[in-house]
Design a protein around this nucleic acid. Structure first.
Lengths: 350, 350
DNA sequence: CTCTGGCACTCGAACGCCCGGAGTGCCAAC
DNA sequence: GTTGGCACTCCGGGCGTTCGAGTGCCAGAG
């Protein structure tokens, strides 16, 4: 359609005041949840022009697809395209107040382990934004190995435990064909750790591939089994886990309840869908996907604000919120960004 | 009120046919979600009497508080008390069909670790019952120690890993005041394991209390720190985790949406509330809490069906579903019981 | 004593109607 | 380019009517 030459249009058709009108419409609509008319606009905002002028501007904005009216002779509401313009050019990110920042820090500082960090984060985010929060667990693929442990549970049964630098622990049972002596076990444990500790998960396969050869023939089978279980764990767990919270906030969505809320709840149960949503976060900064910009159909009337977080300069996972397209974008973006930063700090400390 | 002499009343006032009428009302109402009238009842069920007779019976049932009418000249709907009678004396537990059983087993057999077992269980239960499923992780307090592992991460930093017989793994960082040698570490690990492996968590405190004394004076501080961290983990993690799923099924609740669904979603976010709900499950068998029988106010128009599960004869945790009081009790109870049994089997195998 | 058919009554849901108000689009004037 | 005026549209709420399902009661039959 007309999306290629947005930049042109913005310059040509949309004067400064028209943009101001759009901003006012978005702000009012977000506040009141009701279509906003020309008269109300001039009353609530000091635009310096009369309702009639605003009406003309609104007609232009509607022609260009930034706003729409639910039915003839009703006020206007922003379209997805309108929100997009608002987010891109009309609104900044609203920083949190100092008390809010302090509250975040205090709350997150109390966490005792990784599960707790993620749990607290998700509750915090839900409370701050009054929307549904989604937090991805720090990813295995980007993190490094802190330790690999091997335990003998029974003569032919081992347990493999994998500990990451982000505090995550994964374990697997390994059934071996032949009994595996304690000394061989200690040997394997030591060699395995000396090779992979501190290395990235993605590098592990190459680092261990020649390990079996250095063992006695009768142990090679078991060593291979252990290694393949280890690699399997890496792959399987690369399908990330995540935690959601604040679903009760869905009840604030709107009046046309069942139709809106249903697909959202369904989407929230589909980890794959959620991961994709978060995954679309831009590497560098925050991503805002508005309404139909979301690939998943059920979320066509919701927006997703997501951002990566991590310790050091590295992004190890993402977090974000899902809310109605009619949301307070500056505030939400501010909260999401702030929480991501603090979580990154917490992870770096542990 | 009249609740003390239920048994009497049941005999005195409620003939066999009246009970049959109540059963028919419950069944019809669960099916249609609409108040059921006398005429419809005689048409759908072969009661062998006329609508007028049924009307008289209904009047009695209403006097006794088993049914009520939303407004004058509407059909009747069962009260909580009516459902209670239905569950206790009029309905059995409907066993699942063979294909269903097979499907459950196949689905659960594919699980790779404890998280996966719980995750699959919750999805399964939600799908079978078309309601919200809640599954508690196997409890630490009732399970036994499979292994305790100690790793040295830095000279004065240890990691403690605890593995249970149900496959659960907990880890904690331990900062020690003084460096702790590898040999002391191996020593502690060995002694610790020889004492607690195979023992119940509740017994651990006594079993380890004299351990520090048998170490060199310079190591005693660290040993004590490790032990107290271990005990702490037992206590902290005794606050159980749980997983929920099938929240999208809440949309099938009713028409008076926002009011009903809101408190339920809120309750589902409160682990404490949920744990209490499940906790009310009778030790031996299944528990059904109907409407106002639930202590938590927000769940006054929902019913909870819960049951314990475990490997061997032992109950290690509970699971259940939350749904509208208007639910298919026999079917739900059958599904819950069957799933609990299979999960118990799976846990016993691993 | 129990069951049945009949009958008058009640009340909610659905429908149609009207009206007020908010908001628009257009136009002529500044 | 901006403004005030004006006719028009359409949604939402309030009101009265109708329709039908369902009830309670009663008198009579088994």
């Amino acid at each position: 359609m007309t999306s290629d030459d947005d930049q042109l249009e913005v310059c040509a058709m949309l004067s400064e005041r028209r943009l101001e009108v759009l901003r006012a419409i978005v702000q009012d609509y977000v506040g009141t949840e009701e279509p906003v008319g020309s008269k109300a606009l001039t009353e609530r905002h000091r635009l310096g022009v009369s309702p009639a002028t605003v009406r003309n501007d609104m007609a232009v904005l509607e022609d260009e697809g930034y706003i729409a009216q639910p039915h003839t002779s009703a006020g206007r509401i922003p379209t997805d395209k309108g929100y997009r313009l608002f987010v891109d050019r009309l609104a900044g990110v609203k920083p949190l107040s100092t008390p809010e920042r302090r509250a975040i820090q205090n709350f997150l500082d109390g966490a005792v382990d990784l599960d707790d960090v993620v749990g607290r984060t998700v509750r915090l985010l839900a409370q701050l934004t009054r929307q549904v929060a989604v937090v991805q667990y720090p990813s295995l693929t980007r993190s490094t190995v802190r330790h690999v442990e091997l335990l003998s549970l029974a003569p032919a049964r081992l347990m493999l435990v994998l500990i990451t630098d982000t505090g995550r622990v994964e374990q697997r049972l390994v059934d071996c064909q032949t009994p595996f002596g304690e000394t061989s076990l200690a040997d394997l444990r030591a060699r395995l750790n000396s090779r992979v500790v501190g290395r990235r998960f993605t590098d592990v396969p190459q680092l261990v591939q020649d390990l079996p050869e250095s063992f006695e023939p009768e142990d090679r089978g078991t060593v291979s089994t252990v290694l393949s279980t280890l690699l399997e764990t890496l792959v399987e767990e690369a399908e990330e886990r995540l935690m959601i919270g604040g679903t009760a906030n869905l009840t604030r969505f709107g009046h046309d309840f069942p139709l809106t809320i249903r697909p959202v709840l369904e989407a929230l149960e589909e980890q794959v869908v959620l991961l994709k949503l978060l995954g679309e976060a831009n590497e560098s900064g925050m991503a805002v996907r508005i309404g139909h910009e979301n690939a998943y159909e059920g979320l066509n009337s919701t927006s997703v604000v997501s951002v990566g977080y991590g310790s050091g300069g590295e992004t190890v996972a993402k977090l974000g919120v899902v809310g109605p397209t009619r949301m307070d974008y500056p505030g939400t973006m501010g909260a999401v960004r702030a929480v991501a930063r603090y979580v990154g700090q917490i992870l770096a400390e542990s």
